[in-house]
């Protein structure tokens, strides 16, 4: 068996130990996030920040072609355009949080020290860690998306606007690669600026600044959407898709070159 297959198998075994916790956390976050967004849109749209409210009104006018915006219209925009972004953010929070924690623990407990004494290269080790993160990301993204889609479909049917479901699906699919780029950013941060991991943000389950920085590929597009709502969300998602793929390739190319074994074994 080649070294890369072995290390991937090892990290998949490692990820399997997290299945139940990740699933529980994802289901809980998926339900809470989706329901809160919809209920706020329907019954208390004023709770959104002025910037988001403005963006929602502009998007509603654009997509629904009406000047009289009701809470129902706000909810359609929330469900169709904002939910895919939040679902991706939640999944990334969980995957990136687990990854940062795992790398920190492995560094501290000497796991990397043992692995580096094996006939495997740094590149193999990185592939193992990336596969671990993708596994966790899939474990969290699938239940979150299933729950979110269920709630969005129900909401759009209730509001008699099923035609918007296509836009929701397009955005959901276009945002998928950004999760990979977020994971790679986490790995890059953990190995290049490990001190960041110790900066706690107090945001659960993110916990640290590294995770917060890693979600920027999804956070930035949603901020742009808030600030300049006249840009089509479809275009923004498309740009996110393209930039995520480019970023992922770039990080994959530079990561093996910048990581040194010493960074994996020194804890202080």
């Amino acid at each position: 068996m080649s070294s890369i297959k072995g290390i991937v198998k090892a990290y998949v075994l490692r990820a399997e130990a997290c299945i139940s916790t990740v699933l529980r956390l994802s289901v809980l976050l998926g339900i809470v996030m989706s329901v809160l967004l919809i209920i706020t849109g329907l019954y208390a749209p004023n709770l959104y920040t002025p910037l988001t409210r403005h963006a929602l009104y502009v998007l509603a006018r654009e997509f629904l072609g009406t000047s009289q915006i009701s809470p129902k219209d706000i909810t359609i925009i929330i469900a169709t355009i904002f939910e895919p972004f939040f679902a991706a953010i939640m999944a990334t929070f969980i995957a990136s949080g687990y990854l940062v924690n795992t790398i920190g623990k492995d560094r501290f407990s000497g796991v990397f020290e043992v692995l580096l004494s094996y006939p495997i290269s740094i590149k193999d080790l990185l592939v193992g860690l990336i596969m671990f993160s993708i596994y966790i990301a899939a474990l969290s993204y699938i239940p979150i998306t299933v729950i979110t889609t269920g709630i969005v479909v129900t909401t759009l049917s209730y509001l008699s606007s099923p035609q918007f479901l296509n836009l929701y699906i397009d955005l959901t699919l276009l945002l998928l690669p950004s999760i990979i780029s977020c994971i790679l950013i986490s790995i890059l941060i953990v190995f290049t600026i490990p001190k960041i991991i110790r900066i706690k943000t107090g945001l659960l389950p993110v916990q640290n600044l590294a995770t917060l920085i890693s979600i920027l590929p999804i956070l930035v597009p949603i901020l742009i959407l808030n600030i300049i709502p006249t840009i089509s969300p479809y275009i923004i998602a498309l740009l996110t898709f393209a930039s995520s793929i480019a970023l992922s390739v770039l990080i994959l190319l530079i990561l093996p070159r910048i990581i040194r074994p010493l960074e994996l074994i020194i804890t202080s």
Binding site: R14, A17, K105, D106, S109, G110, V111, E113, V114, S117
Partner: peptide, 12 residues
């Protein structure tokens, strides 16, 4: 190689 820190994974 058996390092001083055993290299064991607590959650497994």
């Amino acid at each position: 190689y058996l390092p001083h820190r055993e290299g064991l994974i607590d959650e497994l």
